[in-house]
Structure formats: C-alpha cells, structure tokens
Design a protein around this nucleic acid. Structure first.
Length: 416
RNA sequence: GUGGGCGUAGCUCAGUUGGUUAGAGCGCGUGGUUGUGGUCCACGAGGUCGUGGGUUCAAGUCCCAUCGCCCACCCCA
C-alpha cells in the first residue's frame, strides 16, 4: 500500500491546482519576455560537481539536501538539480555564450531538495527564474528586481508581499566582515546556541539572523556590515537603491538578510509574505559575479532570482481562475449520435472548445453539460435535424432558439 | 536530523465514563422527468475506524510499536 502513496515530499498536481500553477508560470513567462528574457531549459540533473562547486561545500544544500545518484560509468555521479542558477551557468560555459552577452534567460521547472517537508516546502517543488548574464552595472540589478515586483503585482499579490534588500559586498568586503564577525562571536562562543556555534565557522553571517533569544542579545553589539564595505561596494549598492527609488519600488533594508549559497555577491533580495507560515519567501535572488570563474568559465557577472511556484500558487487560492467554458453537444437519442460526433468534430476544428458526452439520455447529458461548466448546449433532435438546424440553449439564462447548421459558427461566436 | 500535533466514507468532521447492525453534511449514483441542466424531493452505493500487537466478557474509544500526514526548528523557493 505504501507504494501507492507518492514518495514523501512529492505530490500530484490535479487540474484545479494545475490551473493556478499554470497561471503563475504564464504570468512570469509573459512578463519576462516583455523585459527581453527568453525562455530556455537545462536538464533536471547534472554532474554532481556542477552543484558541489557552485553552491559551496558548506551550504546546507550540498551537505545534506541533494539527491545524488551514482551512474554506471565508474566514478561518475549525477544530482537532481536543487536550484536553477548552476545549470544555467553550466549551459553558458558549455555553449560558449560569452560571445552573446548580455544574455537574458527565463526558465521554469522542477527542483529537488531532500528536506523535511512542511507547509510551503516539498522535496520536489517548482520554480520560475530569470538570469541576467554579462551585466556588471547596477542597472541590471534594478531591472531584475523590477521584473520580480512586476510579476508579483500582476498576480494580484501587491499587498501580500514586501521587498527586503541587502548587500553582501564584493568578495573583499565580505571576507573582511566575515573575519570581524568570527572574531567578535568567538569571544562568546560558549554562550551561543548550539546552532550558532556550528554556524560560527561554516557561515557566521547566519548568526545575525538567529531566532535564539540569547543569540540576539549577543548579535545586538556585533560589528555592522556597513563599516566593512569598501567604497566600490558601497557605491554599487547606493546606485541599486537609487534605481529602485527612481522607479518608486518600496523596499526595506535588512542587514540580516543573508543568502545560503556561496556564490552571491553585492545585491541580495527577498520578496516575502506573512501569509504562508514559516516559509514566507516567495521570490528571492541576488548578484553572483564570481560564479562563472568558480566553475572554470570566463569571468562574467550575473544576477537573477527564482520564485517558488507552489508558494505563489498557494497565495492565489481563493482567487477563482476560470478555465475555458465549453459548448456541449447533446444528441437527443441514439439516432442523432453520428450527427453529434460530426458536428463536434467540425466545431473543434473551427476553434471552439466542445464537450460531447459518451453516453446517456438527454437528461444525463444536460447534467453533464452543467457539470463541465458549459456555456451553451447544442441539442440535436430528430425534428431539428430534419430542418438542418440545432437547438442552441444558453445554459446561463436558459433561453433557447433554433439555429440553422450553416449559420451556427457565426451565431456561436458570442459563446466562444 | 530535532521537537510537537493528528490519523473514522471521495472531502470536512461527529462518535458520551470502553457496551448491540459506526453516523452527519457535502460529493457520487438511481428515480421523480422515455426531448432539457442548475433548485427541490425520495432512495441508494461507499468504511479491514492508518497498520500490527496487547489489555478486556467486550476496543473507533485504553496501552505499546510502527507507518503516514501536518506544524515548527535548521535551512530555503
């Protein structure tokens, strides 16, 4: 029986949910395209090194969350992608795309992380994402963030979400700050929570965001990132902020906003909501100027974000997303079934969504028409067909009329 | 990986201090209507009470184990 359950952390997406899912994807794809981001796709699994090298050996994803499998060729190992950027970066290098910079890509698809499932978190989940490669200017950051904001607003989530912004500086600033943090926190090592003691050498920036009450007291007097940013990093961030201001995009600076993946530099941001419990991040990303070199490719700046389709889809619950309303073709009796089949086929080829029941008398078929939310029913009876006509019934108003078959396409235009 | 909560019909749930054939609403099916849906009425199908063991004359109810789901931590979309 256990095998008849989906594997833990995975689930089926049935049509009602799939409709919301698709609304999210379509909205993101259409707007991304408007901003010049072209859709592409990478494989859902890659050589394990692709993720190991890019995400950082200490990141949670690499140390405990990857679905990794050995493959036949000795020593080879592949991993189901836990996120999208590494694959895009690999594709950039594999295809020698440095010639075509700046590159603007949109993608969507499943991602896999072996985590304990909870609200808004599955082991297979889906993301839409964009990447902008080869643009070192803050204008790129501004555009990327503006696109994310545009999509969330277009989905009707404008007042459900807020934007948080931070800078991680360039590698020089970041490592100077990191050193200062380690030095500061080391003095309190035995007072820190167990979690934070672990973070001290793995990712000290994380301690800043600890939820432990005692940690927070220690954090209060910790060195501030602002004091360790070099001029270049400070100027860069100021320009990003100025760009967002110019567009009227509201944001909250959050110096504790840290990314888990090693490849981020400079700008990082999250759009969050309070409506999803503990998993409030709905769209997040940042700049990753060092990533390409880390992977052994040509130095190329990059910035991008990814959004969780399930999380966005959950926020859309309650918003009715209507599917197309079909026209139901209803033969009155067996004798009219052949004519009904023929008419159905003809109307489908003319571009109408048409439902033809597979069995049942007229009453059954009308019930069925109602159930599939049909806009209208075309009733084919002996008397109608004798006149080369059908009965057209408007299922919202209940009004019906006789329509000649050769005028049907035109008459039906209103019901499309 | 750690902590907590919950498993009764397709769904949401009720089920008294353990006590006869385990219930409701919604949904589904059939009929009322052999050429007319939605509303209404009647009838009906559907449950190894998550699973296994134990206590007891008797277990949906108590005990143990196990599996699953949910929520939170960690971390993230």
């Amino acid at each position: 029986m256990r095998s008849l359950q989906p594997v833990r952390g995975t689930r089926d997406i049935l049509p009602d949910e799939m409709r919301r899912h698709r609304a999210v994807i379509n909205c993101a794809r259409n707007l991304a395209e408007r901003y010049g981001y072209r859709e592409m796709a990478t494989p859902i699994f890659e050589s394990t090194e692709v993720f190991q090298r890019t995400l950082g050996d200490t990141s949670d994803i690499v140390t405990k969350e990857m679905y990794t499998f050995p493959v036949r060729e000795e020593g080879d190992s592949v991993t189901l992608r836990p996120e999208g950027t590494a694959g895009v970066a690999r594709a950039y290098i594999s295809n020698s795309l440095q010639q075509q910079v700046p590159i603007k890509y949109f993608y969507s698809g499943p991602m896999f992380r072996h985590e304990r499932p909870q609200k808004g978190r599955q082991r297979q989940f889906h993301q839409v994402g964009v990447e902008l490669l080869g643009v070192a200017q803050p204008l790129g950051d501004v555009e990327i963030i503006a696109l994310g904001d545009h999509i969330l607003r277009a989905l009707g989530l404008g007042d459900a979400i807020k934007l948080e912004l931070n800078t991680l500086g360039d590698p020089e600033s970041r490592s100077a700050y990191r050193t200062a943090l380690v030095e500061y926190f080391s003095a309190y090592e035995d007072k820190l929570s167990e979690d934070s003691r672990g973070r001290l050498h793995r990712n000290p920036l994380r301690i800043l965001d600890s939820k432990d009450e005692n940690d927070r007291r220690i954090v209060e007097n910790a060195p501030a990132f602002g004091d360790y940013l070099n001029d270049q990093s400070r100027d860069f961030f100021a320009e990003v902020c100025a760009g967002l201001d110019a567009l009227g995009l509201e944001y909250a600076l959050n110096s504790r906003l840290v990314r888990g993946l090693d490849y981020y530099t400079h700008t990082c941001f999250e759009f969050t909501t309070t409506r999803l419990g503990a998993q409030g991040t709905v769209l997040a990303g940042g700049r990753y100027d060092g990533l390409m070199e880390t992977m052994g490719g040509p130095a190329t700046p990059g910035i991008g974000w990814a959004a969780g389709i399930e999380r966005l889809s959950m926020l859309l619950e309650g918003q009715a997303i209507e599917g197309p309303r079909p026209i139901a073709v209803v033969p009155a009796a067996r004798a009219q079934e052949a004519a009904a089949l023929h008419l159905t086929h003809d109307l489908r080829h003319k571009g109408f969504a048409v439902e033809l029941g597979y069995s049942g008398n007229l009453g059954k078929r009308m019930k069925r028409a109602n159930k599939v939310n049909a806009r209208a029913a075309l009733i084919l009876g002996e008397s109608e067909l004798a006149q080369g006509s059908v009965t057209l019934r408007d299922l919202d108003t209940g009004e019906q009329e006789l329509v000649a078959l050769d005028a049907l396409g035109e008459r039906l235009a209103a019901f499309r």
